[in-house]
Computed example of a mutant assay.
Amino acid sequence: MDSALSTVGLPIALAIIMFGLGLDLTVRDFRRVGEHPKAVLVALGCQLVLLPLVCFGLVLLFDLPPLLGIGMMLLAASPGGTTANLFSHLFRGDVALNISLTAINSVVAIATLPLITNLTIAWFDQSDSVSMPLVEVVKVFVLILVPVGVGMLVRSRSPQFAARMDRPVRIGSAVILALLIVGILLDQRDDVGGYLADVGLIAAVFCALSLMVGYVVPRSVGVADDQAVASSFEIGVHNGTLAIFVAVEVLGSTEISVPAAVYSLLMFPLAAGWGMAISRRRRLRSDAEPAVT
């Protein structure tokens, strides 16, 4: 990837996206965990335990090359993205729960992301070619947490400004992610056809399973429907920019970033389709209720 894009563009992109997340957050979002512990714990269990296991099973099933397999697991270990909040809002999920989950996940990922990624590197016996030093991981999450903190500070000092900036920052984040994806695909243009053949299907299957797991598991244990919708999008819409940044800047491999780039392209139509399916199910259920009574 072009050096200016990786050394300047990626950090700025990640900082803007995390600043936008901070504009949505307050201290109360962290306290809200105590109000809905069941929904939070089930969603985190899906995100931190079940999802990496599902992804690893798919990596083995599809027999991915080592670097692409590491890229898929890095993606699975990445927390939810800010776009999850937008999808949750569009399809009537509990957006407050989304915001709380994103905040907690971003902090917990400081430990879980390098753990899962390093275990995958060891599994594929790639420690000689790629590594994730602790110092670099700390730098990455400083880059994440500082903009989030600044965004939260701005919101506490000027809620009106934070509200006005919400839409522009979301649009800017989407544009930045699109540019990153284009940059990665151009950088890997000689191999992009093969990469899409290798990871296009697995990325789509993983996205679909992530969305379904995030909804079905919480509902099966009695979590409210709107909270299950929030969980679904939180688990199915990953922070692709973070995964790309770690792949390029920490692991030093554009190839490892390819699954996150492909996933980021596919997750928007898949998440939208899933949201419409949930909405249709809700309408059918509400139409049937009067007949039952």
Rank of each mutant, 00 (worst) to 15 (best):
P147Q: 13
V148K: 04
V148C: 09
G149C: 08
V150T: 08
V150A: 11
G151V: 11
G151K: 03
R157T: 11
S158P: 00
P159D: 04
P159F: 02
F161W: 08
D166H: 14
D166M: 13
R167S: 11
R167W: 12
P168D: 15
P168H: 15
P168E: 15
V169L: 15
I171C: 13
G172H: 03
G172R: 04
A174N: 00
I176Q: 04
I176G: 04
I176E: 01
L177N: 04
L177I: 09
L177G: 10
L179H: 06
L180F: 00
L180N: 00
I181C: 05
I181G: 04
G183D: 01
L186A: 07
L186C: 07
Q188W: 10
R189H: 05
D190P: 02
G193A: 03
G194T: 10
Y195A: 02
L196G: 01
V199H: 05
L201D: 14
I202P: 03
A204I: 14
C207Y: 06
A208G: 04
L209S: 01
L209A: 09
S210K: 09
L211D: 09
G214T: 09
Y215W: 05
V216E: 06
V217L: 08
V217P: 13
P218I: 06
P218E: 07
P218Y: 07
V221E: 08
V221R: 12
G222K: 01
V223F: 07
D225K: 04
D225P: 05
D226N: 12
D226E: 11
Q227K: 12
Q227S: 11
V229G: 14
A230P: 08
S232P: 09
F233H: 08
E234D: 13
E234A: 15
I235K: 02
H238F: 03
N239S: 14
T241A: 15
A243L: 08
A243E: 05
V246P: 02
A247P: 02
A247D: 04
V248H: 10
E249F: 12
E249R: 14
V250M: 05
L251P: 11
G252K: 07
T254I: 12
E255G: 14
I256L: 15
I256W: 14
V258P: 12
V258H: 01
A260V: 11
A261W: 00
V262R: 03
Y263W: 10
L265G: 06
L266Q: 12
M267Y: 06
F268V: 01
L270P: 00
L270G: 02
A271D: 01
A272Q: 03
G273L: 14
G273V: 15
M276S: 03
A277E: 01
A277W: 01
